[in-house]
Design a binder for these strands. Structure first.
Length: 446
DNA sequence: ATCGGCTCGCGCAA
DNA sequence: TGCGCGAAGCCGAT
Protein backbone atom coordinates (compact mmCIF):
# COMPACT_ATOMS: atom_id res chain seq x y z
CA UNK A 1 0.00 0.00 0.00
CA UNK A 2 1.11 3.55 -0.77
CA UNK A 3 -0.34 5.94 1.80
CA UNK A 4 -1.70 9.15 0.21
CA UNK A 5 0.46 11.19 2.58
CA UNK A 6 3.59 9.80 0.89
CA UNK A 7 2.62 11.33 -2.44
CA UNK A 8 3.06 15.02 -3.15
CA UNK A 9 2.52 16.69 -6.49
CA UNK A 10 5.36 19.20 -6.85
CA UNK A 11 4.39 20.27 -10.35
CA UNK A 12 0.73 19.70 -11.22
CA UNK A 13 -0.58 18.96 -14.69
CA UNK A 14 -1.84 16.21 -16.92
CA UNK A 15 0.73 13.62 -17.99
CA UNK A 16 1.41 13.44 -21.71
CA UNK A 17 -0.12 10.38 -23.36
CA UNK A 18 3.08 9.26 -25.06
CA UNK A 19 6.73 8.71 -24.33
CA UNK A 20 7.67 7.20 -20.96
CA UNK A 21 7.35 7.67 -17.24
CA UNK A 22 10.67 8.82 -15.79
CA UNK A 23 11.80 7.80 -12.32
CA UNK A 24 14.42 10.27 -11.10
CA UNK A 25 16.31 8.38 -8.41
CA UNK A 26 17.97 10.57 -5.80
CA UNK A 27 17.56 8.95 -2.41
CA UNK A 28 16.09 5.49 -2.92
CA UNK A 29 18.82 3.41 -4.54
CA UNK A 30 16.95 0.12 -4.27
CA UNK A 31 14.06 -1.88 -5.66
CA UNK A 32 12.69 -3.44 -2.45
CA UNK A 33 10.12 -1.41 -0.50
CA UNK A 34 10.67 1.62 -2.69
CA UNK A 35 7.39 3.54 -2.77
CA UNK A 36 8.57 5.91 -5.49
CA UNK A 37 9.41 2.99 -7.77
CA UNK A 38 6.10 1.23 -7.13
CA UNK A 39 4.18 4.46 -7.66
CA UNK A 40 6.01 4.99 -10.96
CA UNK A 41 5.25 1.43 -12.08
CA UNK A 42 1.55 1.93 -11.37
CA UNK A 43 1.46 5.26 -13.19
CA UNK A 44 3.27 3.76 -16.20
CA UNK A 45 0.77 0.91 -16.34
CA UNK A 46 -2.17 3.31 -15.98
CA UNK A 47 -0.85 5.46 -18.84
CA UNK A 48 0.14 2.35 -20.82
CA UNK A 49 3.71 3.64 -21.08
CA UNK A 50 7.10 2.16 -20.27
CA UNK A 51 9.12 3.24 -17.24
CA UNK A 52 12.75 4.31 -17.30
CA UNK A 53 15.02 5.53 -14.51
CA UNK A 54 17.83 8.04 -14.28
CA UNK A 55 20.45 8.86 -11.67
CA UNK A 56 22.58 11.99 -11.83
CA UNK A 57 26.01 11.28 -10.39
CA UNK A 58 27.59 14.54 -9.28
CA UNK A 59 31.30 14.49 -8.50
CA UNK A 60 30.77 17.74 -6.58
CA UNK A 61 28.65 16.57 -3.67
CA UNK A 62 29.77 18.62 -0.64
CA UNK A 63 32.28 16.83 1.60
CA UNK A 64 31.93 13.51 -0.22
CA UNK A 65 35.09 11.50 -0.93
CA UNK A 66 36.12 8.10 -2.30
CA UNK A 67 34.79 6.34 0.81
CA UNK A 68 31.31 7.67 0.10
CA UNK A 69 31.39 7.33 -3.67
CA UNK A 70 32.56 3.70 -3.50
CA UNK A 71 29.52 2.81 -1.43
CA UNK A 72 27.22 4.83 -3.66
CA UNK A 73 28.57 3.20 -6.84
CA UNK A 74 28.12 -0.27 -5.37
CA UNK A 75 24.54 0.76 -4.74
CA UNK A 76 24.10 1.87 -8.35
CA UNK A 77 25.59 -1.40 -9.61
CA UNK A 78 22.95 -3.35 -7.65
CA UNK A 79 20.22 -0.90 -8.58
CA UNK A 80 20.83 -1.32 -12.31
CA UNK A 81 20.69 -5.11 -12.05
CA UNK A 82 17.64 -5.14 -9.81
CA UNK A 83 15.72 -2.57 -11.87
CA UNK A 84 16.52 -4.53 -15.05
CA UNK A 85 14.83 -7.52 -13.45
CA UNK A 86 11.74 -5.31 -13.13
CA UNK A 87 12.02 -4.27 -16.82
CA UNK A 88 13.13 -0.76 -15.84
CA UNK A 89 16.35 0.38 -17.51
CA UNK A 90 18.58 2.70 -15.43
CA UNK A 91 20.76 5.45 -16.87
CA UNK A 92 23.61 6.83 -14.76
CA UNK A 93 24.84 10.20 -16.01
CA UNK A 94 27.66 12.34 -14.62
CA UNK A 95 26.46 15.82 -13.78
CA UNK A 96 24.21 17.89 -11.57
CA UNK A 97 21.35 15.56 -10.58
CA UNK A 98 18.40 17.84 -11.42
CA UNK A 99 20.01 18.82 -14.73
CA UNK A 100 20.49 15.18 -15.57
CA UNK A 101 16.84 14.56 -14.71
CA UNK A 102 15.70 17.55 -16.79
CA UNK A 103 17.66 16.39 -19.83
CA UNK A 104 16.33 12.86 -19.49
CA UNK A 105 12.78 14.19 -19.17
CA UNK A 106 13.34 16.21 -22.35
CA UNK A 107 13.66 12.98 -24.32
CA UNK A 108 9.92 12.38 -23.97
CA UNK A 109 8.79 12.00 -20.38
CA UNK A 110 5.04 12.00 -19.83
CA UNK A 111 5.48 12.35 -16.10
CA UNK A 112 8.43 12.46 -13.68
CA UNK A 113 8.37 10.62 -10.36
CA UNK A 114 11.03 11.15 -7.72
CA UNK A 115 11.86 10.19 -4.16
CA UNK A 116 12.72 12.34 -1.13
CA UNK A 117 15.93 13.17 0.71
CA UNK A 118 15.97 15.47 3.72
CA UNK A 119 18.96 17.75 3.23
CA UNK A 120 18.93 21.35 2.01
CA UNK A 121 20.72 20.45 -1.20
CA UNK A 122 18.28 17.70 -2.07
CA UNK A 123 15.38 20.10 -1.49
CA UNK A 124 17.06 22.67 -3.72
CA UNK A 125 17.49 20.07 -6.48
CA UNK A 126 13.78 19.30 -6.45
CA UNK A 127 12.88 23.01 -6.50
CA UNK A 128 15.29 23.64 -9.37
CA UNK A 129 13.60 20.93 -11.41
CA UNK A 130 10.06 22.09 -10.60
CA UNK A 131 10.86 25.51 -12.08
CA UNK A 132 12.04 24.07 -15.38
CA UNK A 133 10.02 20.97 -16.09
CA UNK A 134 7.06 21.14 -18.50
CA UNK A 135 5.43 17.88 -17.37
CA UNK A 136 4.07 16.90 -13.95
CA UNK A 137 6.51 16.05 -11.14
CA UNK A 138 5.42 13.85 -8.26
CA UNK A 139 7.53 13.05 -5.21
CA UNK A 140 6.92 9.88 -3.24
CA UNK A 141 8.41 9.58 0.23
CA UNK A 142 10.03 6.28 1.02
CA UNK A 143 13.09 6.99 3.18
CA UNK A 144 10.97 7.67 6.26
CA UNK A 145 8.67 5.09 7.80
CA UNK A 146 6.20 7.89 8.50
CA UNK A 147 6.28 10.95 6.21
CA UNK A 148 8.14 13.76 7.96
CA UNK A 149 5.36 16.31 7.52
CA UNK A 150 2.76 13.92 8.92
CA UNK A 151 4.71 13.36 12.14
CA UNK A 152 5.18 17.05 12.93
CA UNK A 153 5.04 20.45 11.31
CA UNK A 154 7.55 22.15 13.59
CA UNK A 155 11.00 21.63 15.04
CA UNK A 156 10.70 19.12 17.85
CA UNK A 157 12.47 19.90 21.08
CA UNK A 158 13.56 16.39 22.00
CA UNK A 159 12.83 12.71 21.53
CA UNK A 160 10.17 12.83 24.22
CA UNK A 161 8.13 15.39 22.26
CA UNK A 162 8.23 13.52 18.94
CA UNK A 163 7.91 9.98 20.35
CA UNK A 164 4.18 10.03 21.21
CA UNK A 165 3.38 11.57 17.82
CA UNK A 166 5.23 8.73 16.11
CA UNK A 167 3.73 6.03 18.29
CA UNK A 168 0.24 7.30 17.48
CA UNK A 169 0.90 6.92 13.77
CA UNK A 170 3.28 4.12 13.13
CA UNK A 171 0.83 1.25 12.89
CA UNK A 172 -0.83 3.02 9.97
CA UNK A 173 2.48 3.21 8.13
CA UNK A 174 4.17 -0.06 9.06
CA UNK A 175 2.39 -1.83 6.21
CA UNK A 176 3.92 -3.90 3.42
CA UNK A 177 4.28 -2.43 -0.04
CA UNK A 178 2.91 -4.61 -2.83
CA UNK A 179 4.55 -4.75 -6.24
CA UNK A 180 3.10 -4.83 -9.74
CA UNK A 181 4.64 -6.07 -12.97
CA UNK A 182 5.41 -3.40 -15.50
CA UNK A 183 3.29 -3.89 -18.63
CA UNK A 184 5.36 -2.04 -21.18
CA UNK A 185 9.09 -2.20 -21.52
CA UNK A 186 11.41 0.43 -22.98
CA UNK A 187 14.29 -1.18 -24.89
CA UNK A 188 15.98 1.89 -26.21
CA UNK A 189 17.24 3.71 -23.10
CA UNK A 190 20.93 4.44 -22.94
CA UNK A 191 22.56 3.23 -19.72
CA UNK A 192 25.18 5.99 -19.53
CA UNK A 193 28.09 5.23 -17.22
CA UNK A 194 29.18 1.63 -16.78
CA UNK A 195 28.58 0.80 -13.12
CA UNK A 196 29.32 -2.92 -13.29
CA UNK A 197 32.81 -2.31 -11.87
CA UNK A 198 32.52 0.38 -9.17
CA UNK A 199 36.24 0.30 -8.35
CA UNK A 200 37.20 1.12 -11.93
CA UNK A 201 34.64 3.90 -12.27
CA UNK A 202 35.63 5.32 -8.88
CA UNK A 203 39.20 5.87 -10.06
CA UNK A 204 38.03 8.00 -12.96
CA UNK A 205 35.95 10.40 -10.85
CA UNK A 206 37.42 13.84 -10.05
CA UNK A 207 36.76 13.60 -6.32
CA UNK A 208 38.73 13.62 -3.04
CA UNK A 209 40.56 10.27 -3.06
CA UNK A 210 42.36 10.82 0.25
CA UNK A 211 39.93 8.71 2.29
CA UNK A 212 39.82 5.06 1.14
CA UNK A 213 36.63 2.97 1.04
CA UNK A 214 35.45 1.56 4.38
CA UNK A 215 35.39 -2.10 5.35
CA UNK A 216 31.85 -2.93 4.28
CA UNK A 217 30.32 -3.50 0.89
CA UNK A 218 27.57 -1.16 -0.30
CA UNK A 219 24.48 -2.06 -2.30
CA UNK A 220 21.05 -3.58 -1.94
CA UNK A 221 22.27 -7.17 -1.89
CA UNK A 222 24.72 -6.56 0.94
CA UNK A 223 22.06 -4.54 2.76
CA UNK A 224 19.59 -7.40 2.83
CA UNK A 225 22.23 -9.94 3.78
CA UNK A 226 23.18 -7.70 6.69
CA UNK A 227 19.55 -7.17 7.71
CA UNK A 228 18.87 -10.89 7.74
CA UNK A 229 21.99 -11.55 9.77
CA UNK A 230 21.05 -8.79 12.18
CA UNK A 231 17.50 -10.02 12.75
CA UNK A 232 18.38 -13.68 13.18
CA UNK A 233 21.65 -13.39 15.08
CA UNK A 234 21.77 -10.03 16.86
CA UNK A 235 18.31 -8.62 17.47
CA UNK A 236 17.63 -10.66 20.62
CA UNK A 237 20.67 -9.20 22.37
CA UNK A 238 20.38 -5.78 20.79
CA UNK A 239 18.82 -3.96 23.75
CA UNK A 240 21.92 -4.50 25.89
CA UNK A 241 24.77 -5.42 23.54
CA UNK A 242 24.42 -2.36 21.31
CA UNK A 243 25.79 -0.20 24.13
CA UNK A 244 29.04 -2.14 24.46
CA UNK A 245 31.67 -0.98 21.97
CA UNK A 246 33.84 -4.07 22.54
CA UNK A 247 31.27 -6.43 21.02
CA UNK A 248 29.59 -6.55 17.63
CA UNK A 249 26.13 -5.61 18.86
CA UNK A 250 24.96 -2.76 16.64
CA UNK A 251 22.98 -3.20 13.45
CA UNK A 252 25.52 -1.58 11.10
CA UNK A 253 22.61 -0.74 8.83
CA UNK A 254 22.97 3.02 9.03
CA UNK A 255 25.02 3.50 5.87
CA UNK A 256 22.70 1.27 3.83
CA UNK A 257 19.80 3.39 5.08
CA UNK A 258 21.68 6.59 4.33
CA UNK A 259 22.34 5.59 0.71
CA UNK A 260 18.79 4.34 0.23
CA UNK A 261 19.97 0.77 -0.30
CA UNK A 262 17.77 -0.48 2.50
CA UNK A 263 14.21 0.61 3.15
CA UNK A 264 13.53 1.52 6.78
CA UNK A 265 10.16 -0.12 6.21
CA UNK A 266 11.81 -3.45 5.31
CA UNK A 267 13.91 -3.27 8.47
CA UNK A 268 11.02 -2.19 10.69
CA UNK A 269 8.67 -4.91 9.48
CA UNK A 270 11.35 -7.59 9.85
CA UNK A 271 12.15 -6.44 13.39
CA UNK A 272 8.51 -6.22 14.43
CA UNK A 273 7.84 -9.74 13.16
CA UNK A 274 10.75 -11.04 15.21
CA UNK A 275 9.57 -9.17 18.33
CA UNK A 276 11.05 -8.96 21.82
CA UNK A 277 12.88 -6.21 23.71
CA UNK A 278 15.55 -6.07 21.02
CA UNK A 279 12.91 -5.20 18.45
CA UNK A 280 11.53 -2.42 20.66
CA UNK A 281 15.00 -0.93 21.09
CA UNK A 282 15.72 -1.18 17.37
CA UNK A 283 12.41 0.43 16.35
CA UNK A 284 13.15 3.28 18.74
CA UNK A 285 16.43 3.92 16.91
CA UNK A 286 15.14 3.22 13.42
CA UNK A 287 11.95 5.22 13.64
CA UNK A 288 11.91 7.63 16.60
CA UNK A 289 15.55 8.74 16.57
CA UNK A 290 15.88 8.66 12.79
CA UNK A 291 12.69 10.66 12.21
CA UNK A 292 13.80 13.13 14.87
CA UNK A 293 16.90 13.81 12.78
CA UNK A 294 14.78 14.22 9.61
CA UNK A 295 12.60 16.62 11.58
CA UNK A 296 15.70 18.63 12.52
CA UNK A 297 17.01 19.02 8.97
CA UNK A 298 13.56 19.64 7.54
CA UNK A 299 12.29 22.20 10.04
CA UNK A 300 15.49 23.96 11.04
CA UNK A 301 17.03 26.44 8.59
CA UNK A 302 20.50 26.24 10.25
CA UNK A 303 20.65 22.52 10.98
CA UNK A 304 24.30 22.26 9.95
CA UNK A 305 25.63 25.23 11.90
CA UNK A 306 26.68 25.95 15.45
CA UNK A 307 24.28 28.90 15.38
CA UNK A 308 21.42 26.44 14.97
CA UNK A 309 21.96 24.81 18.38
CA UNK A 310 19.44 25.53 21.19
CA UNK A 311 19.79 28.98 22.74
CA UNK A 312 20.29 27.70 26.31
CA UNK A 313 23.17 25.51 25.15
CA UNK A 314 24.96 28.21 23.17
CA UNK A 315 24.50 30.69 26.01
CA UNK A 316 26.02 28.40 28.62
CA UNK A 317 28.90 27.32 26.38
CA UNK A 318 29.70 30.93 25.57
CA UNK A 319 29.71 31.88 29.23
CA UNK A 320 32.48 29.35 29.62
CA UNK A 321 34.29 30.04 26.36
CA UNK A 322 37.09 31.75 28.30
CA UNK A 323 37.68 28.80 30.64
CA UNK A 324 41.16 27.37 30.55
CA UNK A 325 41.67 24.30 28.34
CA UNK A 326 44.21 21.84 29.65
CA UNK A 327 44.85 20.41 26.19
CA UNK A 328 44.17 21.85 22.77
CA UNK A 329 44.57 20.05 19.49
CA UNK A 330 44.40 21.12 15.90
CA UNK A 331 42.02 19.52 13.48
CA UNK A 332 44.96 17.68 11.87
CA UNK A 333 46.10 16.25 15.22
CA UNK A 334 42.59 15.05 15.91
CA UNK A 335 42.31 13.57 12.42
CA UNK A 336 45.55 11.67 12.96
CA UNK A 337 44.36 10.35 16.36
CA UNK A 338 47.29 12.06 18.10
CA UNK A 339 45.93 13.03 21.49
CA UNK A 340 47.03 12.06 25.01
CA UNK A 341 43.86 9.97 25.46
CA UNK A 342 44.15 6.34 24.28
CA UNK A 343 40.37 5.79 24.37
CA UNK A 344 39.70 8.82 22.24
CA UNK A 345 42.42 7.81 19.80
CA UNK A 346 40.96 4.31 19.59
CA UNK A 347 37.53 5.71 18.70
CA UNK A 348 39.01 7.98 16.07
CA UNK A 349 40.94 5.07 14.55
CA UNK A 350 37.85 2.85 14.53
CA UNK A 351 36.14 5.53 12.47
CA UNK A 352 38.98 6.21 10.05
CA UNK A 353 39.59 2.52 9.43
CA UNK A 354 36.06 1.16 9.15
CA UNK A 355 33.80 4.13 8.43
CA UNK A 356 31.93 3.55 11.70
CA UNK A 357 32.46 4.69 15.26
CA UNK A 358 30.55 2.96 18.01
CA UNK A 359 27.60 5.03 19.16
CA UNK A 360 28.61 5.25 22.79
CA UNK A 361 32.19 6.15 21.93
CA UNK A 362 30.94 8.83 19.56
CA UNK A 363 29.39 10.69 22.48
CA UNK A 364 32.60 10.56 24.49
CA UNK A 365 34.63 11.44 21.39
CA UNK A 366 32.53 14.53 20.79
CA UNK A 367 32.51 15.70 24.41
CA UNK A 368 36.29 15.55 24.59
CA UNK A 369 36.70 17.76 21.54
CA UNK A 370 34.68 20.45 23.31
CA UNK A 371 37.30 20.29 26.07
CA UNK A 372 40.24 20.30 23.69
CA UNK A 373 39.48 23.15 21.31
CA UNK A 374 39.70 26.89 22.02
CA UNK A 375 36.01 27.62 21.38
CA UNK A 376 32.80 25.59 21.07
CA UNK A 377 32.38 26.84 17.50
CA UNK A 378 35.73 25.35 16.56
CA UNK A 379 34.81 22.11 18.31
CA UNK A 380 31.57 21.95 16.34
CA UNK A 381 33.26 22.56 13.01
CA UNK A 382 36.03 20.05 13.74
CA UNK A 383 33.60 17.33 14.81
CA UNK A 384 31.39 17.78 11.80
CA UNK A 385 34.40 17.75 9.49
CA UNK A 386 35.82 14.58 11.03
CA UNK A 387 32.43 12.88 11.07
CA UNK A 388 31.53 13.71 7.51
CA UNK A 389 34.97 12.87 6.23
CA UNK A 390 35.28 9.40 7.73
CA UNK A 391 31.87 8.06 8.63
CA UNK A 392 30.38 5.90 5.91
CA UNK A 393 27.03 7.57 6.57
CA UNK A 394 28.49 11.09 6.88
CA UNK A 395 26.22 14.00 5.88
CA UNK A 396 23.16 12.06 6.91
CA UNK A 397 20.62 14.03 9.00
CA UNK A 398 21.83 11.90 11.91
CA UNK A 399 25.31 13.38 11.43
CA UNK A 400 24.12 16.88 12.31
CA UNK A 401 21.91 15.65 15.11
CA UNK A 402 24.65 13.38 16.50
CA UNK A 403 27.18 16.22 16.57
CA UNK A 404 24.54 18.65 17.82
CA UNK A 405 23.69 16.32 20.72
CA UNK A 406 27.24 16.70 21.99
CA UNK A 407 26.46 20.43 22.36
CA UNK A 408 23.09 19.93 24.05
CA UNK A 409 20.73 19.45 21.11
CA UNK A 410 17.73 17.25 22.05
CA UNK A 411 19.25 16.95 25.50
CA UNK A 412 18.75 18.72 28.81
CA UNK A 413 21.05 20.68 31.12
CA UNK A 414 23.09 19.11 33.90
CA UNK A 415 25.38 20.27 36.64
CA UNK A 416 27.33 23.40 35.79
CA UNK A 417 31.05 22.90 35.31
CA UNK A 418 34.04 24.45 33.53
CA UNK A 419 34.04 24.69 29.73
CA UNK A 420 30.69 22.87 29.37
CA UNK A 421 28.52 25.12 31.50
CA UNK A 422 25.32 23.11 31.94
CA UNK A 423 25.80 20.98 28.82
CA UNK A 424 26.18 17.31 29.72
CA UNK A 425 29.71 16.27 30.55
CA UNK A 426 31.32 12.86 30.05
CA UNK A 427 34.64 11.46 31.13
CA UNK A 428 36.68 8.27 30.88
CA UNK A 429 35.38 7.12 34.28
CA UNK A 430 32.06 6.35 32.60
CA UNK A 431 33.77 4.18 30.00
CA UNK A 432 35.57 2.22 32.73
CA UNK A 433 32.37 1.79 34.70
CA UNK A 434 30.28 0.55 31.82
CA UNK A 435 32.55 -1.78 29.89
CA UNK A 436 36.06 -3.02 29.29
CA UNK A 437 37.46 0.13 27.74
CA UNK A 438 41.02 -1.24 27.81
CA UNK A 439 39.86 -4.03 25.53
CA UNK A 440 38.38 -1.45 23.15
CA UNK A 441 41.67 0.47 23.18
CA UNK A 442 43.54 -2.72 22.29
CA UNK A 443 41.10 -3.54 19.50
CA UNK A 444 41.81 -0.19 17.88
CA UNK A 445 45.45 0.17 18.80
CA UNK A 446 47.91 1.87 16.47
C1' DA B 1 26.11 -0.51 45.06
C1' DT B 2 22.63 2.97 45.10
C1' DC B 3 20.64 7.54 45.37
C1' DG B 4 19.67 12.42 45.06
C1' DG B 5 20.82 16.71 43.13
C1' DC B 6 22.23 19.28 39.45
C1' DT B 7 19.33 22.52 35.49
C1' DC B 8 16.07 24.03 31.56
C1' DG B 9 11.93 24.12 29.00
C1' DC B 10 8.14 21.54 26.96
C1' DG B 11 3.60 19.91 27.28
C1' DC B 12 -0.17 18.63 29.78
C1' DA B 13 -3.43 19.13 33.61
C1' DA B 14 -5.93 22.24 36.09
C1' DT C 1 0.25 28.51 36.53
C1' DG C 2 2.22 24.48 38.34
C1' DC C 3 4.41 20.29 37.84
C1' DG C 4 6.61 16.12 36.05
C1' DC C 5 10.10 14.59 33.53
C1' DG C 6 13.60 13.87 30.03
C1' DA C 7 19.09 9.12 25.05
C1' DA C 8 23.25 7.28 27.00
C1' DG C 9 26.19 11.45 33.28
C1' DC C 10 28.83 12.89 37.20
C1' DC C 11 29.80 13.31 41.95
C1' DG C 12 29.56 13.03 46.66
C1' DA C 13 27.08 10.99 50.45
C1' DT C 14 25.39 6.89 52.45
Amino acid sequence: MIHDARVQVLRPGTPRREGFVLLWVQAGVRTRDNHALEYAVREANRLNLPLVAVFGLTPGYPEANARHYAYLLEGLRDLRANLAARDVPLRVTLGSPPEVALNAAGEGAALVVTDVGYTRLQREWREWLVDRLDVPLVQVESEAVIPVGVVSGKQEYAARTIRPKIHRLWHDYLVPLDTHDLKKRERDWDGGEDVTDPTRLLKTLPIDHSVPPGDEEGGETAAHDLLEDFITRKLDGYATRRNDPTVDGSSRLSAHLHYGQLSPLSAAIAAREHGGPGADAFLEELIVRRELSFNYTTDHPHYDRYAGLPAWARATLEEHAGDRREYTYTRAELDAAQTHDPYWNAAQRQMTRTGRMHNYMRMYWGKKVIEWTPTPQQAYDALLWLNNRHEQDGRDPNSWVGVGWVFGLHDRPWTRRPIFGTVRYMNAGGLKRKFDIEKYARQWAE
